[in-house]
């Protein structure tokens, strides 16, 4: 994580130097930017990155936006630690029910946060392995009687010691009473009881669909005490994600390209399920390819040209 942060930092600082050289930034403004980069890009815990727990927390804090999610994760961590201390003192203890519902549109960071949670729970001693098994309906639901229980149990077995992340979990209930999805839900609930000390189940999906799913299965609501909302990213946050993504790869957006990206993101923000961070990544990856094609005709592109993503590289990005 520290290495990654360093790479981002130095790519940004190189860009500042380029802007000074081009005459687009005064030296005082450049120094202010360098200071800001140095302060903001190094997570607070990166100064002592020793343990995997600290690294995971630094990674979480390094994610763009997600303020409430981060706060909740820190609360869960604190709660676990205090419960463990209380247990050591022989005090009454709340049983740790850490199964969770993640609600949010695609590309809002649900899987990323789940993966980080796995590491945190392992380091806190809640899980023995802390790995993430990501599944969807097709991985759990079978095609004939008995097949679903077999498939679901197989995924549970793989996830033991870690987190079973069921994406688009609401689809398990979409077929009505006769659908095999119901059988899978029953199987999952049983596994939550049987392996309560070494398995965490996270059900994820669109906000409205998950609400309907929980209403249709009232028994599930009480079994998932932690429900986290993943809001869509703001335009500023999406632009920041783009810049971090590019800086990690030694690219940067020219002012014109930034304007174009902002324009494209504004258009897509009005659409539901616009893709959020994933959409940004797709647009940027396409822009990187288009930049390569544009530069391939030039015999000796400069270092700055090799780093700069220009407006023309982004044109047509939304359709990508």
């Amino acid at each position: 994580m520290v290495k990654r942060v360093e790479r981002i930092k130095y790519a940004q600082l190189d860009r500042i130097g380029v802007l000074v050289e081009k005459g687009e930034l005064t030296p005082p403004a450049a120094l202010a930017s360098i200071r800001k980069s140095s302060e903001s890009l190094i997570p607070p815990t990166a100064t002592n990155p020793g343990s995997p727990l600290e690294k995971a927390l630094a990674q979480l804090d390094g994610l763009v936006g997600l303020t409430e999610v981060k706060q909740l994760v820190h609360e869960i961590k604190a709660f676990i630690e205090i419960q463990q201390k209380r247990a050591r003192e022989g005090l009454a203890n709340e049983p740790l029910a850490l199964h969770q519902i993640f609600k949010g549109n695609p590309g809002t960071g649900k899987t990323t946060v789940a993966r980080i949670l796995g590491v945190i729970f392992k380091e806190l001693g809640v899980l023995s392995k802390g790995h993430l098994v990501e599944v969807e309906r097709a991985d759990l639901v079978g095609e004939y009687i008995g097949h679903t229980a077999q498939k679901t149990r197989e995924q549970i077995r793989k996830a033991l010691g870690g987190i079973l992340f069921v994406d688009e979990a609401y689809s398990l209930a979409r077929g009505g009473e006769k659908d095999f999805g119901k059988e899978s839900i029953d199987c999952l609930v049983k596994a939550m009881e049987d392996h309560r000390d070494d398995l965490i189940l996270i059900l994820a999906g669109y906000r409205e669909e998950m609400e309907y799913f929980l209403q249709a299965n009232p028994g599930l609501r009480s079994r998932f005490p932690i429900r986290i909302d993943f809001p869509d990213y703001s335009l500023e946050e999406l632009l920041e994600i783009a810049q971090v993504f590019l800086a990690e790869r030694d690219y940067y957006l020219t002012p014109g390209a930034r304007e174009e990206l902002a324009r494209q993101l504004l258009v897509t923000q009005s659409l539901r399920h616009s893709g959020n961070a994933r959409l940004v990544r797709n647009i940027i990856e396409r822009a990187m390819r288009r930049q390569a094609v544009r530069l391939s005709t030039q015999p000796n592109p400069s270092r700055d040209q090799l780093m700069a993503i220009e407006r023309v590289d982004l044109e047509g990005g939304v359709a990508a």
Binding site: G17, V20, E21, K22, G23, E24, T26, P27, L31
Partner: peptide, 20 residues
């Protein structure tokens, strides 16, 4: 270092080097 943008690119390049 200076407070403004210098007109000479060589000077700006040297200032960028100082900042680095």
């Amino acid at each position: 270092l200076i407070d403004h943008i210098h007109s000479d690119v060589e000077v700006r390049r040297a200032i960028a080097q100082t900042l680095g």
